[in-house]
Measured scan of single mutants.
Amino acid sequence: VTTYKLVINGKTLKGETTTKAVDAETAEKAFKQYANDNGVDAVWTYDDATKTFTVTEMV
């Protein structure tokens, strides 16, 4: 189990959160659900070296 981080650069929601998951795909599903629940529709990137997902909402 690995800890993954999500950085949110949204128009109305900004911040960071983490989740523990067995792999990046599982973490991504959890983070996308979190973003969807909070109304963030954005572009996703992932950095495997830092285990960090970044979501940037387009203006």
Rank of each mutant, 00 (worst) to 15 (best):
T17A: 13
V7Q: 04
V1P: 07
G39Y: 13
F53S: 00
N38T: 12
K51S: 03
T45I: 08
A24L: 11
F53M: 01
T56N: 06
E16G: 06
D37W: 13
A21L: 02
N9V: 13
V40H: 05
G39D: 07
V7D: 02
L6Q: 01
D41G: 06
V43R: 07
E28I: 08
V22K: 11
V59I: 11
A21S: 04
T2S: 11
T54Y: 12
K5V: 08
A49E: 10
G10Q: 06
N38A: 14
V55A: 15
Y46H: 00
K51D: 01
D48K: 05
T54A: 03
M58L: 12
N38R: 13
V1K: 08
V7W: 03
A42R: 05
F31V: 01
D37T: 12
A24Y: 14
T26Q: 10
V7E: 03
G10T: 15
K5A: 03
T18D: 04
G10E: 03
G10C: 15
V40Y: 09
G10F: 15
G15T: 14
K32H: 08
E25P: 08
V7R: 04
T19S: 04
K51F: 08
M58Q: 12
V59C: 12
D37R: 11
A21P: 01
E28R: 12
K11I: 15
T3A: 04
T50E: 06
W44E: 00
E25N: 08
W44D: 00
V22E: 08
T18E: 10
T12A: 09
M58G: 10
D48F: 06
A24C: 13
D23Q: 02
T19C: 14
T56L: 07
F53W: 04
T19H: 08
G39V: 14
Q33P: 02
E25C: 08
E16C: 15
E28C: 14
V1C: 13
A35W: 14
I8N: 01
F53D: 00
A30K: 10
A21H: 03
N9G: 03
F53E: 00
Y34K: 03
A30M: 10
Y4M: 00
E57F: 10
D47Q: 03
A21N: 02
L13H: 13
T2C: 13
K51A: 04
T26V: 04
K5I: 09
E25K: 11
W44H: 00
K20N: 12
K20D: 11
E25V: 10
K29A: 09
L6N: 01
K11C: 13
I8F: 13
T2F: 12
F31C: 03
F53K: 00
T19D: 02
A21Y: 04
T12P: 07
K11A: 14
Q33H: 07
T56E: 07
G15R: 13
T3Q: 07
E16V: 12
T26M: 09
Y46L: 00
D48W: 05
V22T: 12
T50R: 04
N9R: 09
F31L: 04
N9Y: 12
V22R: 10
N36R: 14
L6K: 00
E16I: 09
V59N: 11
T3E: 09
T18W: 14
K20F: 13
A30V: 15
E57C: 11
T26E: 11
K5G: 02
M58P: 12
A27T: 00
G15W: 15
Y34L: 07
K51E: 02
D48A: 12
N38S: 10
Y34G: 02
K11P: 14
Y4C: 03
N36T: 14
A49Q: 10
K20C: 13
T26Y: 04
T2P: 07
D48T: 06
N36I: 15
A27L: 02
V1I: 10
T2V: 12
V59G: 12
D41V: 12
T45R: 06
E57L: 05
K14N: 14
F53N: 00
K32F: 05
A49S: 11
V7K: 06
F31N: 00
T19L: 12
V55F: 05
G39Q: 07
G39R: 06
Y46M: 00
T26G: 06
L13I: 12
T19E: 04
A27H: 00
T56R: 04
A35Y: 15
A27R: 01
E25F: 08
V7S: 03
N9S: 07
V43P: 04
V40S: 04
T17P: 03
N36W: 15
T54R: 04
K11Q: 14
T56W: 09
T54S: 05
D47M: 02
Y4T: 01
A49M: 11
Y34R: 02
F31Y: 01
Q33Y: 05
E57R: 04
Y4S: 01
G10W: 14
D48Y: 05
K20E: 11
N36P: 08
L13V: 11
K11F: 14
F53V: 01
K51Y: 06
D23E: 02
W44P: 01
G15P: 06
E28A: 12
F31W: 02
K29R: 10
Y4H: 01
K14E: 07
V55G: 04
K11D: 11
F53I: 03
A27K: 00
G39H: 09
D37A: 13
T52R: 01
D23L: 03
V59W: 11
L6P: 01
A30D: 06
V55Y: 07
T2N: 10
K14H: 13
A35I: 15
V22Q: 09
T17K: 13
D41M: 10
N9F: 09
Y34Q: 04
T18M: 09
Y4I: 02
Y4Q: 01
K11N: 14
G10I: 15
Y46E: 00
T54P: 00
T17I: 12
G15K: 14
T26D: 07
K32A: 05
V59T: 11
A24H: 09
T52I: 04
I8L: 10
E16N: 06
V40D: 04
K14P: 08
A27W: 01
T50P: 00
Y4D: 01
K14L: 11
G15S: 13
K51M: 06
T17E: 06
E25W: 09
D23C: 05
A49F: 10
D23M: 03
A21W: 03
M58A: 10
T18L: 07
A42N: 07
V22I: 12
L13A: 05
T2A: 09
D47S: 04
